[in-house]
Design a protein around this nucleic acid. Structure first.
Length: 741
DNA sequence: TCTGTCACG
DNA sequence: ACGTACGTGACAGAA
């Protein structure tokens, strides 16, 4: 299946008109009459749900597509998202016309949903379309505002005086970097009532900068004044570097919105446009697009920074007014106050702390890997007879399946390439040593580029440590996500990969690394949440859950479970957590579909409570449109009633999985907060330095080890009290992260 | 900038 | 007839 040649895109204006036309219910119904079967169903579904635009806004995009002047510029036209939705809805012709891309239609499929719409005729029904919803028509030039420049010591003192009298204020920092641990402070802005804000520039000279920050120290550290900000963790870390600890109640607009709408985006521009209908000054107009010509905030003329920075504080304050009542209405206040807000402070300290890396060790390993890669590459090129790029999936596919004529038995990727992922190649590797060599090469190259070479480059020159950032408002389940670098995906499963963990070391010879893991947390929680007696009893008896499962499912004594039986039971246990069906289980276990089905049936006969739970949770989701964790975190499932069976099944799996994954996330978040509090109260030298979903890592002072171990264990086990399922924590200590396991 | 691949829980 | 395991982030290659 080859790609068809690209068809030039139609103009943006025409694109918008097309979209408007298909946004009307009447337009959709009319088209539906001409269609048959599944496509007809789908069109009616869209019509029922309201408008196409609404569909676009809620199902996959989770962002409103706007049919106003903004879109005409195509500047903010989110092509990827739109492509995905069009593909999902099988709007191929429309996609091609609007996005101007070569879509690769599967051969022999029925025609496009709307037939081939001619561009010239697309305007006839535009008038019957509802008015484009007006969005973000306000901006700084048509909205009254008072933004003050605070550029003298006297003015700053007056501002501090004014702010000290408030019970709450909003603030924001301007800096030179997106990395809070590298950023220099450029300015501070403040607001406490809508449409008025203050901007305080900060000079480049470090001592002067610090001195100005200190003028605001008492104010920012005042426990009784609420602090409002968008992504306050960033500002708090920047200020911590200036010797200021931001204290008091945190209202973070980003995190508040994350709890209200976990599936949407939470950046300030989006929030402002959506809820305030106000388009903020774009940072691009100040510092330019990303790239080598991008300016630093320090280089932007002061009068422009004042407008931009003051506006940010102003908008954030207005967003708080909008979001705070909603948190209460939606019953998310307690979750915010007791979990997310305190966690921000925990993460500020954790990220500020960072973790030490043995760069010399990694550099040595890099040289070793380079040698192995060179040998592997030479071997592969010789066998292939051509010097191709083994890191290119495209070239690997061509060499294996065109040149060497190895039979290809799978679906190609959506771009028409041969798929050469690990799963496919492993199968071929049994018969072809050459394919095995390619997998070896890939493994080594990945290890070197992603970890061994990348980590030393991430060392902060100021601290000599790595400061990953933990995103608290990303994963829809409530988990944290680590980036820059991602320290939640450091290898452990293979011996070569595991070496990397030896590079994570204590700060000095007085310290050791301590790792504390929840054991089988998700299975314990599914037992808890479902209340399944058999699984609870297995845990309460202290049994190995996979072995216990195997004994039940295969009808053998606990002691007689074979290694293969345990492995199969383990896979089934996981497949249950993920809501997977027989098809996938059969693939995982290399079984016939019918055998996998039988296995699942037997599983549910043994764990009836689990079966009930899965049915009940899907029913709950259908009734309420969302699911929730033990602590009340919500996730909306907009596809739970979809007529598209794929979208619906997907929503059903999410309904099953999210309460489990999300409750595990809640549990460890509470543990982190309580451990952080206890450590602070006791003024320990030991620090929490990493979280990896079910594991916490500490840079532990040797003399404190025996004191902190029971504290950590207690806070982790009892994060949520009175659970029926026993929670187990395993701890290890070592000279590096690998040894600590 | 997107795609394919692969690292983790 | 045929689909999909849940949740993430980063890299190299190919446009």
């Amino acid at each position: 299946m080859d790609n068809i040649p690209g068809i030039p895109g139609i103009g943006a204006k025409t694109a918008v008109k097309l979209l408007e036309q298909y946004s009307s219910v009447e337009g959709l119904i009319e088209h539906a009459a001409e269609l048959k079967g599944k496509q007809k169903e789908r069109v009616i579904e869209f019509a029922e749900q309201g408008l196409l635009s609404k569909k676009l806004a809620t199902i996959d995009l989770n962002v409103p597509i706007q049919f106003d002047a903004k879109v005409y510029e195509l500047e903010d036209f989110d092509k990827n998202r739109l492509t995905k939705v069009f593909k999902d809805l099988e709007f191929r012709t429309l996609a091609r016309q609007i996005l101007g891309e070569a879509q690769a239609p599967p051969p022999g499929r029925q025609g496009t949903l709307f037939g081939d719409v001619e561009i010239g005729t697309a305007t006839s029904k535009a008038s019957s379309a509802p008015p484009a919803h007006s969005v973000a028509e306000k901006n700084i030039s048509n909205t009254a505002h008072e933004y003050h420049l605070v550029d003298t010591k006297e003015k700053r003192a007056a501002l501090v005086e004014l702010l000290s009298k408030q019970s709450s204020f909003c603030f924001d920092t301007e800096t030179t970097s997106v990395d809070a641990n590298q950023a220099e402070l450029v300015g501070l802005s403040f607001a406490f009532k809508p449409h008025e804000a203050w901007y305080v520039p900060v000079p480049a000279e470090p001592a002067e900068a610090r001195s100005i920050a200190q003028e605001f120290k008492e104010l920012l550290e005042n426990e009784s004044i609420e602090k409002v900000a968008q992504n306050i963790k960033y500002d708090a870390i920047v200020l911590k570097w200036q010797g200021v600890e931001v204290k008091g109640y945190y209202f973070d607009t980003m995190i508040a919105h994350y709890l209200l709408e976990p599936g949407l985006r939470h950046n300030m521009d989006f929030l402002s446009e959506t809820y305030l209908k106000y388009q903020p000054v774009s940072i691009k107009t100040l510092i330019g697009r990303k790239g080598k010509n991008q300016l630093s905030m320090r280089d932007v003329p002061l009068e422009k920074v004042v407008e931009y920075a003051a506006e940010d504080a102003d908008i954030t304050l207005q967003l708080k007014e909008h979001l705070a009542p909603k948190l209460k209405e939606e019953g998310l206040q307690q979750l915010y106050d007791e979990m997310e807000a305190p966690l921000v402070k925990t993460l500020v300290d954790l990220e500020f702390e960072g973790i030490r890396i043995d760069a010399a060790f990694l550099n040595k390993y890099s040289v070793e890997l380079e040698k192995q890669i060179a040998v592997s590459q030479k071997k592969i090129h010789e066998k292939a007879g051509v010097a191709f790029n083994i890191a290119s999936p495209k070239q690997v596919g061509e060499v294996l399946f065109d040149k060497m004529k190895i039979p290809y038995r799978w679906r190609k990727t959506k771009t028409g390439q041969y798929s050469t992922d690990e799963e496919k190649l492993s199968e071929l590797a049994k018969e072809h040593q050459f394919v095995a060599d390619i997998l070896t090469f890939r493994g080594l190259a990945k290890l070197k580029s992603t970890y061994v070479d990348a980590l030393p480059r991430m060392v902060n020159p100021k601290t000599g440590r790595i400061h990953s950032s933990f995103n608290q408002a990303l994963a829809a389940t409530g988990r944290l996500a680590s980036n820059n670098p991602n320290l939640q995906n450091i290898p452990i499963r293979t011996p070569e990969g595991r070496e990397v963990r030896k590079a994570f070391i204590p700060r000095n010879e007085d310290y050791l690394l301590l790792a504390a893991d929840y054991s089988q947390i998700e299975l314990r929680l599914i037992a808890e949440i479902s209340g399944d007696q058999a699984m609870l009893e297995a845990f309460q008896a202290g049994q190995d859950i996979h072995r216990a499962t195997a004994a039940k499912v295969f009808g053998v004594a606990y002691a007689d479970v074979s290694a293969d039986q345990r492995r199969a039971a383990k896979t089934v246990n996981f497949s249950i957590i993920y809501g997977a069906g027989a098809t996938n289980l059969s693939r995982q276990l290399n079984l016939k579909r019918t055998a996998a089905k039988e296995l699942i049936d037997q599983y549910f006969r043994q764990y009836e409570g689990l079966k009930d739970y899965m049915e009940k949770i899907v029913e709950f989701a259908r009734k309420n449109g969302f699911v929730k964790t033990l602590m009340g975190r919500r996730r909306y499932l907009r596809d739970i009633d979809s007529r598209n069976s794929m979208a619906r099944s997907n929503a059903e799996r999410i309904a099953v999985n999210t309460p489990i994954q999300g409750t595990a996330a809640d549990l460890i978040k509470i543990a982190m907060i309580n451990i952080h509090k206890a450590f602070k109260a006791a003024d320990f030298k030991s620090k929490m330095v990493l979280q990896v979903h079910d594991e916490l890592v500490f840079d532990a002072h040797k003399e404190e080890l025996e004191t902190i171990k029971p504290i950590i264990e207690d806070k982790m086990k009892n994060a949520i009290p009175n659970l029926k399922a026993p929670i187990l924590v395993e701890m290890g200590i070592g000279e590096n992260w690998l040894e600590a396991h």
